[in-house]
Write a protein that binds this DNA or RNA. Sequence first.
RNA 1: GCACCCGUAGCUCAGCGGAUUAGAGCACUAGUCUUCGGAACUAGGUGUCACAGGUUCGAAUCCUGUCGGGUGUACCA
Length: 559
Amino acid sequence: MDSLKAKISEVIKKLYGVEVPVEFAPVPAEIEGDYSCNVAMRLAKAAGKAPRDIAAEIIAELPTDYEYTVAGPGFINIAVSGKALAGQLSAAWTDDYGYNQSGAGKTAVSEFPSTNMAKPYSVGHLRPGTQGWAAKRILEANGWKVITDNHLGDAGTPFGIWATGFKRSGKSIDEVTIYDLGEIYIQMKADMKAEEAAGEHALADSAQDWLLKLEAGDAEATELSERFNKISLDHIHGVMKRMNLSTDYELGESFFVERGKALVQKYLDEGVFVKNEDGSVICPLDEFGIEVPMLVLKSNGAALYATTDLGCLDYRLHEWKADRLIYAVGAEQKFYFEQLFAVAKKLGWNAEMQHVWFGTIDQVGPDGKREKMSSRKGVVLLEAMLDDAEKRVRENFAEAELADEDVRRIATGAIKYSDFIADRKTGILYDPDKIFALTGQSGPFCQYACVRMRRILEKNADFAGADFGDYDFAAEKGVLQKLLEFPALVAGVAENLEAHRIAGYCFELAQEMNRYYENAPISTAEPATKAARLWLVARAATVLERGLDLLGIEIPEKM
RNA sequence: GCACCCGUAGCUCAGCGGAUUAGAGCACUAGUCUUCGGAACUAGGUGUCACAGGUUCGAAUCCUGUCGGGUGUACCA
């Protein structure tokens, strides 16, 4: 089809002397043709002619390998035979079909899930993980080298709050679990809020003290921090393993404290940053149209998120030589990242910096209204969600006698896919019955389609690769068109990291296959037909698996 | 106040630079099949695409305004 596009461009240039982007779109089922092209309408104004007349003129110049019709207001509809489509797929097929090398030689860093070590892994950290992982896989499919880094929240105020609350609780460090620590943290946050409202600040001061002690290398603070971090990290690793997520690095905030502070001093000396009377340091951003300057050092001299993030940014750009930085973080931090990226620009740091933000996870509140999930309202923990998902899978697939690993694959497949149904910018409504749905547009539906294809291929393995003569591929047109779309889709989502378009594609392909089986029997077909159909199924299976892989969704052995 | 995001079917959401009769899933109803794996497939929609203007041969899509919801707005992360 690419050669036809080029030919159309050529004809347009010859006839009208202009260049117009030529794209093909699928045609609605009721209308004759397989692809439609709207160039005639785009040309109408420049050419000063009616779109339908232009379409006719263009068609007269085109090769006769295809059938053309002028439809509607001036679409050129192109009819392609199934055989021609099969020929195209065959010609385009390689071992890495769907992938490309547009990012070859370039390095990206994808930051996720940036877990807050103060609390147990909650549903709130679900999206950073799924979206950040998809960003990594999508870029890799486009030839990028991708470094992943879990930017752990292991420094800053949370430690101070933790330490203060922990000492107050009187608990033993050898007994506390991540759940205890999470409760302590949440209680402390509430108490501090009440304290602030009362005009007091004993707890806040204590938290700041602990923080300063830690940064100064105080022995007790260091030990507490290490113990807390180990408990938290073990927990995070456990949950990530169940989700089949991992990162190459876990350079937490604490790793960047010194680097960040040194940078602040450096740019303070150079006059880029400004010191306030109270001792805090800011970076003015007026020239970027941002009225609120970025605070890069607290008045007491302690680092804050911006300090460590600046150090981190510097590290990624200059140590890892990154060309592109991806931050999979919620929408609440949009303004923060606008500031951060502006600071980087001001410092002359050049790289593509992208905040891959996403909407909140909402729930239905007691009043029946949709509201944001939050710790105070009783947050759903990811471990509990995974347990629930696995329980539902076991119940629903009781007859299949699934292996534990397959149960896990299906459960996480359902959870992950639900995150990719909508555009990442759209908030998600947490509804367990919908997330764990096994029918309709869901992860299990797609996984099932893969398993089914694999089984068909296995059972008919002896026919694979056999000659399929002059089979017409008439029944396969829908699937073939879908398969031919895949490479452009993978390339198309690389810029804005729109994983939901991959998810939609996987569903459509799975659905297309289900329709296909209805009227195209395989095992009972004539040898040539059978070989042809197995050839198609093998390719569809590969594409569907690759699509799901980009979303981090695994395929179970059986289900 | 200002900035950003959003408003599409009963519900949850697609609709990528404007284009053929605005789609999918869920739910509901009725069918199909002696099932290569039925968790399937087929059929069934009277939607002021929040509202009002504008640009255009053509607007859910672009522009302006209004209303409604969400998020953010320096010592939290």
